[in-house]
Amino acid sequence: VRLVQFQKNTDEPMGITLKMNELNHCIVARIMHGGMIHRQGTLHVGDEIREINGISVANQTVEQLQKMLREMRGSITFKIVP
């Protein structure tokens, strides 16, 4: 398990697509080339996201998580399992 932190201070999309796997874990499905996450190089396709800013992603839908990420500003921390 590791923590990945980055800054999001604009309306620029993060450039990641999330999916739920068969165990209902949140997985990074795709990283858009040239997007914020791609430029930082901190997340990778297949990484499992456990928490966003200390909030568990368990029992949340992809749509709920994407909305939460769109609305966040400032420092964002993901707890991930590579």
Rank of each mutant, 00 (worst) to 15 (best):
V57G: 01
I49F: 01
H33T: 13
D47M: 01
N59E: 13
G35C: 08
N59I: 03
E22G: 14
N21V: 06
M14D: 03
R73K: 14
P82M: 04
N24R: 09
V62N: 14
I31P: 01
F6T: 06
E12C: 07
I27C: 05
I37H: 04
I49W: 00
F78Q: 00
L43M: 12
M36K: 07
I76H: 02
D47S: 01
D47Y: 01
F78T: 01
T17Y: 12
L23F: 10
V45R: 05
R50P: 01
L3S: 11
F6L: 15
Q40T: 08
S56Q: 09
L3I: 15
D11K: 09
V81K: 10
V62C: 10
L43K: 00
Q40C: 08
R70Y: 10
N24G: 14
H38N: 06
L43A: 01
N59G: 14
G15C: 02
L18Y: 04
K67N: 13
F6M: 15
K19H: 12
I52V: 10
A58D: 10
M20F: 14
V1P: 03
P13I: 05
M20E: 03
I37Q: 03
T10P: 10
R2L: 05
M72R: 06
M68C: 11
E51F: 03
T42A: 13
E22A: 11
I16W: 10
G41R: 06
M14S: 05
Q60P: 00
N59C: 06
I49E: 00
T17G: 11
T42P: 03
G74Y: 02
H38M: 08
E71S: 12
I52A: 03
T10Y: 07
A58Y: 09
L3H: 04
T61H: 08
K67R: 11
H25G: 10
G35E: 05
V45N: 04
L3Y: 12
K19I: 07
D47P: 00
T17P: 00
N21G: 05
G54Q: 08
T42G: 13
G34L: 04
N24F: 04
T61R: 07
M72C: 13
G34T: 06
L43E: 01
M36N: 08
I76Y: 03
E63T: 07
V45P: 09
G15Q: 03
E48R: 10
R50N: 09
E63P: 11
V62P: 11
V62H: 06
H33V: 13
V45G: 02
I16K: 00
L69W: 03
R39S: 10
K19F: 10
R50A: 11
I31S: 01
H38F: 09
G34H: 09
I80Y: 05
G74H: 03
G54W: 02
Q7I: 15
E63C: 08
T77R: 07
E48A: 07
E48D: 07
H44K: 13
G46D: 04
D47L: 00
K19G: 14
M20G: 02
V57E: 00
G15V: 01
T10I: 08
V57Y: 02
I49P: 01
N24L: 03
H33Y: 07
K79R: 09
L65T: 13
C26P: 14
H38E: 15
V57K: 01
Q66C: 09
M14T: 05
N9S: 12
M14P: 08
L43P: 02
V1H: 04
V28Q: 01
G41S: 07
G15A: 03
T17H: 15
V57N: 01
Q66I: 07
I52T: 06
Q7V: 13
Q64A: 13
V28C: 04
Q7A: 11
I55T: 13
S75D: 15
K79H: 13
V45W: 02
I37N: 03
G41D: 09
G54D: 07
I49M: 04
K79T: 09
Q5D: 10
R50T: 11
N24T: 04
G35F: 04
R39P: 02
G74L: 01
L65R: 02
A29M: 09
M72D: 05
H25L: 09
S75K: 13
Q5I: 08
K8T: 05
A58L: 09
N9V: 13
V81Y: 11
Q40H: 07
G54S: 08
N9R: 11
Q60N: 13
N59V: 05
Q60G: 05
S75A: 15
G74A: 02
V45Y: 02
I37E: 03
V81W: 07
C26L: 08
K79E: 06
M72K: 08
P13E: 06
R50E: 08
F78H: 00
L65W: 09
F78S: 01
H44W: 04
V1Y: 14
N53E: 03
R2E: 11
V4G: 01
T77F: 12
G54H: 08
K19L: 11
M72S: 14
M72Y: 09
G34N: 12
M20T: 07
I27E: 09
T10N: 08
Q60L: 09
Q66R: 07
E12M: 12
P13D: 11
P82L: 04
N21R: 04
H25D: 05
V62W: 05
I27Q: 07
Q7G: 04
S75Q: 14
R73I: 10
I31F: 03
R73Y: 05
E12G: 09
Q66N: 12
N21I: 05
V28W: 00
H44E: 14
V28L: 03
H38C: 06
E71P: 05
Q5F: 10
S56I: 05
Q40P: 02
M72L: 14
H25V: 06
R39M: 06
I27T: 12
Q60Y: 11
Q60A: 10
P13H: 09
T42H: 09
V1Q: 05
D47N: 02
R2C: 07
M14N: 03
T10M: 13
S56N: 11
G46C: 01
H38K: 06
I55E: 14
T42I: 09
G54N: 05
I52R: 02
V62Q: 08
R50I: 15
N59M: 07
G35W: 03
L69G: 03
I37Y: 03
K8I: 13
T17F: 08
Q5R: 15
R50F: 04
L43Y: 01
V45L: 09
I49R: 01
T17V: 13
A58Q: 12
N53Q: 05
E12I: 07
Q60T: 07
D11G: 11
Q40V: 09
L3T: 15
K67W: 06
Q5V: 15
E12D: 07
C26E: 00
L18E: 00
N9I: 12
V28G: 00
Q40I: 09
R70K: 12
T10V: 06
D11W: 05
K67G: 12
D47Q: 01
P13F: 06
T61N: 14
Q40G: 07
T61Y: 03
V62I: 11
T61Q: 10
Q66Y: 10
M72F: 15
G35N: 04
R30E: 14
V1R: 05
N21E: 06
G15S: 02
L43S: 01
M36E: 14
G34I: 02
V28S: 01
E48I: 08
I37L: 07
M36G: 09
D47H: 00
E71Q: 09
H33A: 14
R70C: 11
L18F: 15
L3K: 11
R50V: 13
M32W: 10
M36L: 14
H38W: 11
E22V: 08
S75I: 06
I37A: 14
M36F: 15
V1T: 14
L69H: 01
V45M: 11
G46V: 00
V57T: 14
L43V: 12
S56R: 09
G46N: 06
M68L: 11
I76A: 03
N9A: 13
N9C: 07
Q66V: 06
I80L: 06
M32Y: 08
Q40A: 12
Q7D: 15
N53H: 01
N53G: 05
I49C: 01
L3C: 05
T17N: 07
I37F: 07
P82K: 06
K8Y: 07
N53S: 05
H44T: 10
F6V: 15
V81I: 12
P82E: 09
S75H: 10
Q64S: 12
H38R: 04
N59R: 07
T77N: 07
E22L: 06
M68R: 13
M72E: 08
A58F: 08
P13L: 06
E12F: 04
G34D: 11
K8W: 06
I31G: 00
V4D: 01
N53P: 01
K79N: 07
Q60H: 12
M68D: 15
P13V: 10
H33E: 15
V57A: 09
M20L: 12
